[in-house]
């Protein structure tokens, strides 16, 4: 498979101080949905803004569909579609007028644009409300409009920056099915940034975990889960004595002390190890407040490689707070 995007040592430093993207190198194959998973502020949106020509990198380069980021910025903008994190459609224009404006900005011939707009509006079930002002749309409808705005120019690469941020569960799943059908219909490369683990697990063919501007690990969801080499058992203990004793448990491949006296233990097979662990706890008079057994998941992969939990709920609250403050 040839590559749609090739990123080489891309770095972005804001105001000479804050490193938002730190020496990122990545190759993304043509026609796949590629997920960039990371917390807010991890550098995902900055990376997208660089790749779409909105921001200039401090150093490094990238090639998008064979075009050099530093030389062919205008060409790249022409062949990419973007669905940014924030709403970018004009509430004072109707859904159809918004799409028409985007078509005009991308120089799509008038007749072709009209046909395409009709297809896109039908695809995301907005055709019946096409003449209504976008400000009257619900959150989900508005997001769907944003989604098709990114497709008016039939891009080779579509960037989706946190496409379901702040939406309810049903609307999110709804939007996922639209994204899948877009990929199937147009056979384009889709780059998806998100901090929702289920989103990347459900949609992405391949993903990278990004943290503090760096790519920590890349692979398919299955590969990353396998890389954990086993299951995870977490125990919430009461005191340092118990923590010291559990540290000597021999059947775990790895034992880590997390926050709030929580022990994260990696074991080859939790079904076999659990009885052994229970006996060890009993023999050593350790009585944990809670025991949790988890099979490899992206959540665990994220904790493993970043040392932190990806707290989507908190991030949503932070985002809502941020939007209210605007």
């Amino acid at each position: 498979m040839d590559n749609s995007i090739e990123i080489e040592n891309l770095t972005k430093i804001y105001s000479g101080r804050v490193t938002a993207v730190d020496n990122v190198s990545l190759k993304i194959g043509r026609g796949m949905i590629y997920g960039l998973l990371g917390q807010n502020g991890a550098g995902k949106s900055t990376l997208i803004k660089i790749l779409t020509g909105v921001l200039k990198p401090t150093s490094g380069t990238a090639r998008i569909a064979g075009n050099d980021l530093n030389k062919d910025s205008l060409k790249i903008r022409r062949i990419t579609g973007v669905v940014p994190q924030d709403l970018t459609t004009d509430g004072d224009l109707s859904g159809r007028e918004n799409l028409k404006l985007v078509a005009e900005l991308y120089d799509v011939p008038k007749k072709e644009a009209e046909e395409r707009i009709e297809v896109l509006l039908k695809m995301v079930d907005l055709y019946d409300v096409r003449n209504r002002h976008a400000s009257a749309y619900s959150g989900g409808m508005r997001k769907r409009l944003e989604l098709v705005c990114g497709l008016v120019n039939t891009p080779e690469v579509l960037f989706l920056d946190e496409p379901t941020l702040g939406l309810d569960v049903t609307t999110r799943e709804n939007l996922w099915s639209y994204i899948r059908s877009i990929q199937k219909e147009f056979k384009i490369t889709i780059i998806l940034t998100t901090h929702y683990l289920d989103e990347v697990d459900s949609l992405a063919d391949k993903l990278s975990i990004i943290d503090h501007g760096k790519i920590i690990i890349s692979g398919t969801s299955e590969e990353l889960k396998k890389s954990l080499n086993g299951d995870i058992i977490t125990l919430k203990l009461k005191n340092d004595d118990e923590i010291n004793k559990i540290g000597e448990f021999k059947n775990a491949t790895e034992i880590k002390l997390m926050e709030n006296k929580e022990i994260r233990m990696k074991v080859s097979n939790s079904d076999e190890i659990l009885p052994v662990l229970m006996k060890y706890l009993s023999d050593n008079s350790i009585s944990p407040e809670s025991i949790n057994i988890r099979k490899p998941s992206l959540d665990e992969v994220f904790i493993e490689y970043t040392g932190r939990n990806i707290n989507a709920e908190q991030e949503n609250k932070d985002y809502a707070k941020f939007m209210r403050a605007r």
Binding site: V54, T80, V82, P84, D86, D90, L105, Y106
Partner: peptide, 14 residues
Amino acid sequence: RRLGILQRLLMAPI
């Protein structure tokens, strides 16, 4: 800029 519309315009090949 405040409504986010400017972001879409900046991404357009104009």
